[in-house]
Amino acid sequence: MYSCSDLKKGLKLLIDGEPHVIVQYDFTKPGKGQSLYKCKLRNMITGALFDRTYRSGETFEPASLEERDMQYLYQDDSGHVFMDKKNYEQVFLTEDTLGDDKYFLIDNMDVEILMYGERAIGISLPNFVNLRVTQSDPWVKGDTAAGNNKPATVETGYTLQVPSFVEEGTLIQIDTRTGNYVTRVKE
């Protein structure tokens, strides 16, 4: 069983017998008031989105789903296609289901796909991915107000803050759990 303190983005819960994933999570506590846990949930089967606010003391049943080792192949009209490494079966996930995770997919990458029966309904990415910076303006020396940060876009279209010394063409490591820059990668 989970309690409210376990709630976070990406956690999978069983609600009314169906698996749900928390896609947005916010903790609020007005003044000396009670803790309120505001969640946006996605029904992993129907894709339906809804908001729900929980209060301390509530408990949740984990959604235990089968995970299969797969490889990312390519993107087409139906979505992003993955292949089961054991039986070569192919499954796909839509952009909606992937959310920001779509920015961290690299061809032939090993991932874990969450299954509901024979249907793919979610993904677990490796914690770190390496992606190449395709666009970032040169840093203006002396611009300390920005705190040595600047925006950069990587090959998948994802935009993040990077240190001023990162140049276009640099391979960088990104933490897929936070979406944050980690380090440059030696090539």
């Binding site: 940060n149 990077v162 490591q173 030696k186």
Partner: peptide, 11 residues
């Protein structure tokens, strides 16, 4: 792997 100071702190 890490070839530079931890940027999330340095920044």
């Amino acid at each position: 792997m890490m070839i530079e100071p931890n940027w999330q702190i340095a920044r």
